[in-house]
Amino acid sequence: MISNAKIARINELAAKAKAGVITEEEKAEQQKLRQEYLK
């Protein structure tokens, strides 16, 4: 099960992506976390 901290990070990265200020490194982290969440 995914931790609350990881869910919070997913939401934080989603907000950054929506604002258009996300880095390529953060995009990769976001994809990794989303895949983990979906498992």
Rank of each mutant, 00 (worst) to 15 (best):
M1Q: 12
I2L: 12
I2N: 07
I2T: 09
I2F: 12
S3T: 12
S3V: 08
S3W: 04
S3C: 14
S3F: 04
S3N: 10
N4P: 15
N4K: 15
N4T: 14
N4D: 13
N4I: 15
N4Y: 04
A5M: 09
A5K: 09
A5V: 10
A5W: 06
K6D: 07
K6E: 04
K6H: 11
I7R: 13
I7Y: 05
I7T: 05
I7G: 03
A8Q: 12
A8V: 09
A8D: 09
A8M: 14
A8H: 11
A8R: 14
R9P: 00
R9H: 02
R9Y: 02
R9V: 01
R9C: 01
R9D: 01
R9K: 03
R9A: 02
I10L: 15
N11D: 07
N11G: 07
N11I: 15
N11T: 10
N11F: 15
E12T: 05
E12Q: 11
E12L: 09
E12H: 06
L13T: 00
L13H: 00
L13M: 01
L13I: 02
L13N: 00
L13A: 01
L13F: 02
A14M: 12
A14T: 07
A14I: 10
A14R: 13
A15L: 13
A15F: 09
A15W: 10
A15R: 13
K16H: 03
K16G: 00
K16N: 02
K16A: 04
K16Q: 02
K16L: 11
A17Y: 07
A17N: 04
A17K: 05
A17L: 08
K18W: 06
K18F: 06
K18V: 10
K18I: 11
K18A: 14
K18D: 09
K18S: 08
A19F: 07
A19N: 11
A19K: 09
A19C: 09
G20D: 03
G20Y: 02
G20K: 04
V21C: 08
V21T: 15
V21H: 08
V21M: 08
V21G: 04
V21F: 07
V21A: 07
V21W: 08
I22T: 02
I22A: 04
I22F: 02
I22S: 02
I22H: 00
I22L: 14
T23I: 01
T23E: 02
T23Y: 01
T23F: 01
E24N: 10
E24I: 10
E24F: 05
E24Y: 05
E24D: 10
E25N: 06
E25S: 09
E25R: 07
E25F: 05
E25V: 06
E25G: 05
E26G: 00
E26F: 00
E26W: 01
E26Y: 01
E26S: 00
E26C: 03
K27S: 06
K27W: 08
K27T: 06
K27G: 03
K27E: 12
K27R: 12
A28I: 13
A28C: 10
E29T: 02
E29I: 03
E29D: 02
E29H: 01
Q30A: 15
Q30F: 15
Q31G: 05
Q31R: 14
Q31I: 12
Q31L: 13
Q31K: 12
K32P: 00
K32N: 06
K32E: 09
K32H: 05
K32L: 14
L33M: 03
L33A: 02
L33C: 01
L33D: 00
L33N: 01
L33I: 04
R34A: 10
R34K: 08
R34G: 04
Q35G: 06
Q35C: 15
Q35T: 08
E36N: 04
E36C: 15
E36Q: 07
Y37S: 06
Y37L: 13
Y37P: 03
Y37V: 09
Y37M: 12
L38R: 11
L38T: 10
L38S: 11
L38H: 11
L38Y: 14
L38V: 09
L38F: 11
K39C: 14
K39P: 09
K39Q: 14
K39F: 13
K39T: 14
K39D: 14
